[in-house]
Design a protein around this nucleic acid. Structure first.
Lengths: 196, 196
DNA sequence: GTACAAAACTAACGCTTATTAGTTTTTTTA
DNA sequence: TAAAAAAACTAATAAGCGTTAGTTTTGTAC
């Protein structure tokens, strides 16, 4: 009779969620079974239900935890009073760090949100839209204040978000490139494309 | 008793595959059932098996059709004798056109290749790797010939591929931006980042 | 040690899945 | 028009799914 090991400062539900994030990333949410997850943890599938409500609830937990982290950081940036380029650099670096530090969770939130049931799906998409619009607004203000060059804000935001998301393909590359070097290269490249 | 409608110059298998690509894009491969696909086509699920071998075979057809199109175009570019920037522009434009013209298929190949069974999975990944390495080689030669600035070829290729892939989020946007304008903006932006 | 709660277990449920077998209908060929 | 081939149908199969019920074991507190 194996036991679920909780982490330092974490509940057993947290441990299950973390293992699930890894499994969902590797195989996809719909192709991952509760029995498979239980195997990884070293327990029977039914035992998981002492700690979680449902398979879907695990996905919800992952997706909204990631969304909340991004939104919290965004609000912090919005209230910082820094100039546009500083705000964007802060946001880009946060995206990169999230991708590197919480790879599984960010990957799952990016790829598996479609599997959320309503009303969670609508809620999640609304948060994404709001986040995207906030970034567009930041770029727009920068253009108006002439802090950055006159580009279409939507294209700029699309480019930035696509670029940082591309890091998921880089991940696991041995060490041709140091993390800090890649981070600085990407920040410089993305910001340089915005300066006048 | 409904019938499967084949297209101009297409077999019924092609019609099934095309409808499947749309379904798989919207719901994901694992979450799409053969009954659902049959419903969309207007036929019983078992009738599909007169034309296809299995659900997995449909995914294989989609993924390798896309891979072959990209590889064929790449070989054409490699043998063109043009300079580095011309080659890269050609490749970037092809990626954009593929994303716009064969949205469902490209999306499915990008998102659902993990669900391929061996040996198809290994084959697919090998083709992707080879494709990526060929792009890196093109950039490397450009750097060596001093046709483009001295950047890390891997980072350049990662940036280009991430950017064009980001177009899948843009798709379905009403018409804030004309297709040609977006295409030219993206090409210019990506190539400008490479010039000395 | 005894009582209580937490968390594991076994066993099963009802449902959905991809797929097959066998049959009937439709279309093509001669 | 009759025979042959293509493609639809109905019905069923075995396997896997998430989840629940009921029971037993484990850990905690007096």
């Amino acid at each position: 009779m194996a036991k679920i090991k909780a982490f330092r400062n974490g509940t057993k539900k947290d441990a299950i969620t973390q293992k699930a994030a890894g499994l969902f990333r590797r195989k996809g949410f719909a192709s991952s079974s509760m029995r498979e997850l239980a195997d990884i943890i070293g327990v029977e599938a039914s035992s998981l239900y002492n700690h979680i409500g449902s398979k879907s609830e695990i996905l919800q937990t992952i997706c909204f935890k990631v969304a909340t982290e991004f939104n919290t950081h965004l609000q912090q940036v919005q209230g910082s009073g820094k100039d546009t380029l500083n705000k964007l650099e802060n946001l880009i670096r946060f995206h990169i760090h999230m991708m590197l530090d919480s790879y599984d969770e960010v990957f799952v939130a990016n790829h598996e949100w479609k599997q959320l049931p309503e009303p969670y799906l609508g809620n999640f998409l609304e948060q994404r839209k709001t986040y995207e619009n906030s970034l567009i607004e930041i770029v727009s203000i920068g253009v108006k204040k002439e802090e950055i060059k006159n580009i279409h804000p939507y294209v700029a935001v699309l480019t930035i978000l696509s670029a940082v998301r591309g890091l998921e393909f880089w991940h696991r590359q041995k060490k041709n490139l140091a993390v800090e070097a890649l981070e600085n290269d990407m920040v410089n490249h993305l910001l340089k494309g915005l300066t006048k």
